[in-house]
């Protein structure tokens, strides 16, 4: 599904990602963990070209992201993204947030888009909020709407960029529950997270990044109980 080969990313002279190669299979849930500044968010953002890689290749479903930017809109439509700070459209209602992109980018009819949007709102438990504006929602509700908005495009792959880091502690669970539900439904997911519990419970594989280098990867059970590298051991000692 995702095939990343020898990915480099530099901001000026600062090398943020260095020679990263990784693959993600269809239906797999991969967690990316690592200290802050390790490049994990940048790596995730490269996967839908919000950051343009300096070097290397990325293929999603056999289509190269790095070869030409011509069809970038089409490719991005197949990749859902959830941000740390939600980035809901504040001037649109919850329902309009969900229907906007399907109508504008995919050309789906309004009635059909609204029908699907209502089903998704039900799925994230926010049916009664469809006419509300984002500013009236709590953080957890905003993030659930943001997940539903991404799902409204019926993506084949979902990227999560620290989806619970900006939430009050009591709201983390409601978002993680939605993500677990999504993982169980067979969605391919790449999740940058500080939630070690989520990574351990839900992820099929863990990637550990430090200083822009993919230091270690493995099964969560293996990785958390018995990390192979010194750097991963250090990191886990600090966070667990």
């Amino acid at each position: 599904m995702i095939n990343v080969q020898n990915l480099y990313k530099k901001f000026g002279t600062n090398e943020v990602l260095s020679d990263i190669s990784a693959t993600v299979k269809k239906g797999e849930v991969v967690s990316i963990i690592g200290p802050s500044g390790s490049g994990k968010s940048t790596f995730l953002r490269c996967l839908n070209l919000l950051e343009v890689p300096t070097d290397g290749t990325i293929e999603i479903n056999g289509k190269s992201l790095t070869a030409s930017n011509k069809n970038i809109h089409k490719i991005r439509q197949e990749i859902g993204m959830v941000f740390q700070h939600f980035h809901l459209f504040p001037h649109l209602t919850v329902l309009e947030n969900l229907t906007y992109a399907p109508i504008k980018a995919k050309g789906i009819k309004k009635a059909e888009a609204e029908l699907k949007a209502r089903l998704l709102l039900e799925r994230v438990g926010l049916s009664e909020k469809e006419k509300a504006y984002p500013n009236s929602l709590s953080g957890g509700q905003k993030q659930r709407v943001a997940i539903a908005r991404a799902l409204a495009m019926e993506p084949e792959l979902m990227l999560f960029d620290e989806p619970t880091s900006a939430l009050d502690p009591e709201m983390v669970k409601e978002v993680l529950d939605v993500m677990k539900d999504l993982a169980q439904s067979g969605m391919t997911m790449v999740v940058v997270t500080h939630e070690m519990g989520f990574a351990r419970e839900v992820a099929d594989r863990v990637l550990f990044l430090d200083h822009g280098v993919l230091v270690e990867e493995g099964q969560p059970v293996e990785f958390f109980s018995n990390p192979k590298t010194e750097r991963a051991k250090d990191f886990l000692d600090k966070v667990l």
């Binding site: 839908n48 919000l50 809109h73 089409k74 490719i75 991005r76 439509q77 197949e78 990749i79 859902g80 993204m81 941000f83 700070h85 980035h87 809901l88 459209f89 504040p90 001037h91 906007y100 992109a101 504008k104 980018a105 995919k106 908005r149 991404a150 495009m153």
Partner: peptide, 25 residues
């Protein structure tokens, strides 16, 4: 800037993004 990124991530073309998301705000 997150508004632009959210619209881009959803695959919304530049014109629609400017007209419906950025300019109204």
């Amino acid at each position: 800037k997150g508004q632009t990124e959210a619209a881009q991530a959803l695959g919304v073309p530049y014109r629609s993004m400017m007209k419906d998301i950025i300019l109204p705000q």
